[in-house]
């Protein structure tokens, strides 16, 4: 098939950036979106041009590295799908496809479609953990977890940290990412001792990074390749309210 690509090109963080248009022919409809970009880059290199920089690694939808806004949607038109798992057969022959990087003040563009998502790491470092040193653990089955809670915690923990929620949100809010981790740990008995500290510190770091607030539009859930539920955001709201009202400091 044949496609026209309008791709965001930006040399570095200081560059203003602009769209460039590329024509590609003979693309196999079974190629993944990133494999189509591989073909584009091989072509650009052979033409002596600079290939498009984009983040990717596992190409099986779990590492969370790939990050393209395709035709106005993070990770493209398919629900619950990362860019690397999106295939060209979901596009029309001859279609023009617009590709942009994640856009958020907290995710500055490094080059072309590559953005800096280290804000997420800092949010985790602020409290997204359970404080237990290696060797301090008790016998695993001495901690009983109701199956329902374990399942809910797992559903929240499936987050791959790609940032599509931020990219999709009109406010570039990181609520879904933060809420997924807060929920995961708040639902487990192991997470209780640090429950208040965790949510307050993580929210404080999130605000410091410059993410927006939540308008409950559900755009994050719709874009999330793992289908993380907005119910987690409600849970975080509850956790935070409780923590700020009840913590004695």
């Amino acid at each position: 098939m044949r496609v026209t690509l309008k791709v965001w090109r930006q040399k570095n963080a200081q560059d203003k950036g602009r769209f460039e248009t590329y024509e590609l022919d003979h693309i196999d409809e079974h190629a993944s979106f990133l494999e189509m970009f591989d073909v584009l880059n091989e072509k650009l290199i052979k033409e002596g041009k600079d290939p498009v920089a984009f983040d990717h690694d596992c190409r099986e939808g779990i590492c969370g590295m790939c990050s393209m806004v395709i035709n106005g949607r993070p990770h493209g038109p398919l629900p619950r799908t990362t860019t690397c798992q999106l295939h060209m057969r979901h596009f029309r022959d001859g279609e023009t496809i617009v590709v942009e990087p994640w856009r958020a003040g907290a995710f500055p563009v490094i080059k072309d479609l590559v953005v800096d998502r280290s804000a997420f790491d800092r949010i985790i470092a602020a409290g997204g953990f359970i404080s237990v040193n290696t060797g301090q653990a008790v016998e695993a089955n001495s901690i009983l977890v109701p199956k329902e809670n374990a399942d809910k915690a797992m559903s929240a923990a499936e987050c791959i940290g790609c940032g599509a929620c931020v990219a999709a949100c009109k406010n570039a809010s990181a609520m879904l990412f933060v809420a997924a981790k807060v929920s995961h740990l708040a639902l487990l008995p192991q997470g209780q001792p640090e429950r208040y500290r965790r949510v307050r510190n993580m929210v404080a770091q999130m605000d410091k990074e410059g993410f927006g607030a939540c308008t409950n539009t559900n755009a994050c859930e719709a874009a999330c390749p793992k289908g993380i539920s907005v119910a987690n955001i409600a849970r975080m709201n509850r956790e935070y309210l409780r923590a700020t009202l009840l913590a004695e400091d």
């Binding site: 617009v98 856009r103 539009t217």
Partner: peptide
């Protein structure tokens, strides 16, 4: 919220799951 996204998208597609009023 506006400050959180200093550069806008060139193209943004509405998602059927997202209500117009919420946006």
């Amino acid at each position: 919220n506006r400050k959180a996204r200093p550069v806008r998208y060139a193209m943004q597609a509405a998602h059927p799951q997202v209500s117009w009023s919420s946006l």
